[in-house]
Design a protein around this nucleic acid. Structure first.
Lengths: 83, 83
DNA sequence: AGAAAAAATACGCCAAAGCGCATAAATTGT
DNA sequence: ACAATTTATGCGCTTTGGCGTATTTTTTCT
């Protein structure tokens, strides 16, 4: 399963959920990702649009990754050849 | 199906593939995404790490989207509960 | 080969992301 | 309620992504 992330806010929420699932503080995640606690805070809020590199660092620290697929309404994954 | 995108370079390549599949020029994609042709160029090369917003705009223009999931070696999608 | 279209680069400029450092506000736990 | 931990903000500074404008360089098509 993978959750879609179309907006910075959605991405922030998913990151926060994953972090809490691991019982990590923002500081712990920040250290692992080479960022500041404050940066994690803004990312999770999704208000200040982050840099791609920063998000990738966070995802990596959480053992997560981006996937790119066709837009699907709802949560389906009925996709064919796009690339 | 969805392709994983762990690095700016991978993301750039996927975007380029999707664009070519539609027979769009960088200029056409740029216009649809509200960006410059030059910006698309750098994104596809993956050299200059882009901003998250910019990537999201491009994906949207291509009717693509990000999905976040557990890291999987290879191309499998055998994922469970992470969030 | 030559022309035309597309893609890669260049340069100065501006906006803003993330930093260090620090503090206020909110949560959690006893 | 109180202390301790965690999270949200603040401020000045540095770095850099994307813009406008424009020019190469590369690819595509007669």
């Amino acid at each position: 399963m993978s959750d879609l992330a179309r907006t910075p806010r959605q991405i922030g929420t998913l990151i926060q959920r994953a972090r809490k699932k691991r019982d990590w503080t923002q500081k712990q995640l920040a250290d692992r990702a080479g960022l500041r606690q404050a940066t994690i805070s803004t990312i999770e809020s999704g208000e200040k649009p982050a840099k791609l590199d920063t998000i990738l660092a966070v995802l990596s620290a959480l053992d997560l990754e981006f996937r790119i697929g066709a837009r699907s309404r709802g949560d389906a994954s009925d996709i064919e050849e796009i690339f």
